[in-house]
Simulated scan of single mutants.
Amino acid sequence: MPLNVKNEKKRVAKIYAVGVGPGDPELLTRKAERIIRTVPVICTPTGTADASSYALSIVEEFIDRSRQEVLVQVFPMRKDQEGLDEFWEKAADEVAERIGQGLDVAFITIGDPFLYSTFLYLYRIFRKRYSHIPIEVVPGITSVGAASVAAGLPLGMASDRIAILPTTYEDAELRKTFREFDTVVLMKVNRVFDRVYALLRELGLDKNAAFVRRVGSSDEEVVFDLATLVGQKLDYLSLLIVKK
Rank of each mutant, 00 (worst) to 15 (best):
I36H: 02
L103N: 13
I36R: 01
T109A: 09
S57K: 14
D112S: 07
R67D: 05
P40E: 07
F75D: 01
E69M: 14
A91L: 06
R30C: 09
S66V: 08
M77L: 12
P76V: 02
R34H: 11
Q81P: 09
D93W: 06
A49R: 14
I99N: 00
D112R: 03
A91E: 01
I63V: 14
F75V: 04
Q68R: 07
K31A: 11
D112V: 03
E86W: 09
D104K: 09
A55F: 00
A106P: 02
A51K: 12
D64K: 08
P25V: 08
I35K: 03
I99Q: 02
E86Q: 14
L71E: 08
T38R: 13
G83K: 01
K90H: 10
I58H: 02
P25F: 07
Q68M: 08
P76M: 05
A49W: 04
E60L: 09
V95D: 01
E97N: 14
V70L: 12
Y54Q: 13
D50V: 07
A49Q: 13
R98V: 05
L84P: 06
Q101T: 06
Q68G: 08
A32P: 00
V41R: 00
P113D: 12
D80L: 05
E82A: 15
P113S: 13
A55E: 01
D64T: 07
R37P: 01
K31H: 10
L56Q: 04
V72G: 08
D104I: 07
G83E: 03
E61D: 10
K31Y: 07
W88T: 12
T38A: 15
E69W: 06
L56F: 14
V74W: 01
A51I: 03
S52C: 09
T44E: 02
D104G: 13
R65G: 11
R67L: 04
I108A: 10
A106R: 00
P40I: 04
V74Q: 07
E94N: 12
E89R: 15
S53G: 06
E33Q: 14
A32M: 06
A51M: 07
L28I: 05
C43H: 00
Y54G: 11
A51T: 11
G100L: 06
D85G: 15
S52I: 02
F107W: 03
T38L: 11
A91G: 08
G102H: 06
G83D: 03
P113M: 13
E61P: 00
C43L: 04
L28M: 09
R65D: 10
I110A: 07
Q81E: 13
I35V: 12
G100H: 05
V74D: 07
R34Q: 15
R65T: 14
I58E: 02
R98M: 08
P113I: 10
R67T: 12
R67S: 12
P40C: 10
S57F: 02
P45D: 05
I110W: 00
D50F: 03
E33F: 01
F62C: 09
E82D: 13
D93Y: 10
V39W: 00
G102F: 03
G100K: 04
V39C: 10
R98N: 11
Q81A: 15
V70N: 12
A96S: 06
S66A: 13
I99H: 03
Y54F: 15
E86N: 10
